[in-house]
Design a protein around this nucleic acid. Sequence first.
DNA 1: GACGGCATACCGACCAGTTGGTATGTCACT
DNA 2: AGTGACATACCAACTGGTCGGTATGCCGTC
Lengths: 238, 238
Amino acid sequence: MSRPTAKTDARTKLLEAALSVIRTKGYSATSVDELCAAAGVTKGAFFHHFKGKAELGVAAADHWSEMTGALFAAAPYHDHADALERVLAYVDFRKGLLRGPLPDFTCLVGTMVQETYETAPAIRDACKRSITGHAATLEADIEAAMRERSIAADWTAKSLALHMQAVIQGAFILAKATGGAKIAADSIDHLRRYIEMLFGVESGQTKRMETRREADQDHRAHLVGRRDPGPRRTGRRR
Amino acid sequence: MSRPTAKTDARTKLLEAALSVIRTKGYSATSVDELCAAAGVTKGAFFHHFKGKAELGVAAADHWSEMTGALFAAAPYHDHADALERVLAYVDFRKGLLRGPLPDFTCLVGTMVQETYETAPAIRDACKRSITGHAATLEADIEAAMRERSIAADWTAKSLALHMQAVIQGAFILAKATGGAKIAADSIDHLRRYIEMLFGVESGQTKRMETRREADQDHRAHLVGRRDPGPRRTGRRR
DNA sequence: GACGGCATACCGACCAGTTGGTATGTCACT
DNA sequence: AGTGACATACCAACTGGTCGGTATGCCGTC
């Protein structure tokens, strides 16, 4: 049924090329010819597998969802027994991904949706699926954390999960604007601090009225190998 | 020096058209011809004022900085005597801007930089100037708030100002993906709560261990017409 | 096990329209 | 008569997309 030519068929090569090229120059600026050249296939192959450029856009977003889905599913942040720690470890994991050239760690669908939200509904929807689908994988942990820590909040697990995505997407934009990842890492630090505060974690970070003078030094220390001593309390309330 | 033909010269019309068209379809997908048509001028006028499309991109970003700079400079959030309240009022102001069609309230430079960060350094730099320049206008208030509230933190006013921009930019992406502003408003709510928590504001929002059952109801109440009872302290500035 | 029939995967020349950009001209002021 | 502010006409390169063709595998039939 699907053992056509061999290992890497043209479709897969085109999809893989699309991720790389579109993340570098955007969707609109990426031409079909360039995509074919990058994938090492001909235009005939392109239009054999996709009805047009727009369909490739959708397929690329879906492919992105699969790739990132697998990456996050296999990531170690799930290992923590404590739900809140899983959430925080997710944030750390995202921060850890901010390495290498910008096109390698920024988000395909975040880029694409900005160019297509008004002009290509099919692509926009694929991007929406990708983002909200990924956010949904965080909801259970956030909810569990809320339960475990007895958090009664006027925000929902879903809204926090989406907010986390917003911060990450925004961090990518700042990174692209400044040409470096540091600014993105700083923003993710703020996100982590926010989550800690939401859940009442007393980290060594934000304290009031104490004029701690070592504060400025351990700026990034909290993420390299950070591991909270353990769940404060296994118990739940409610 | 600059009273050429009349009220709205071609350059200004092109710039204004650029804001609208680029925000709708992105920079790459916007053609010079379309820009000219939208501005009601000819191609000759375009290339008379700009060396090429890239130069228009830079000029559009600079124009955007001027426009938004004036908007925010004239905005009422500066009126509060309390620095923290100015910062929070800024957040509210940003949230209040989330009205009408998406292309009307989303950010030009946030869109452009995603398409040009690797291919057009001049545009990227103009976008960077726009974002960091705007963030810088928040720094003084944040710093003053930190002083007034005696906050000793391991984050800087600058990093918080930039984080606020990241959240807003990310919120725009989510809004574009979902086709609505609500998701962006929710994210800005989270941002507000974060700032409140950073500064130790005891708002009616996130409480722990109290099983408040009205929490779920007043979900959006806190921003529609929110106005803290008044400055906590008329206190000094610098 | 050779056969024709048929589908899939891919090739690459070609097309019409669009792209950013140019060359030249007009015209109102100064 | 020169200059800034446009307009018109035009172009070469590129755009997304088409189309006829080929190579190869799988199938039931004889």
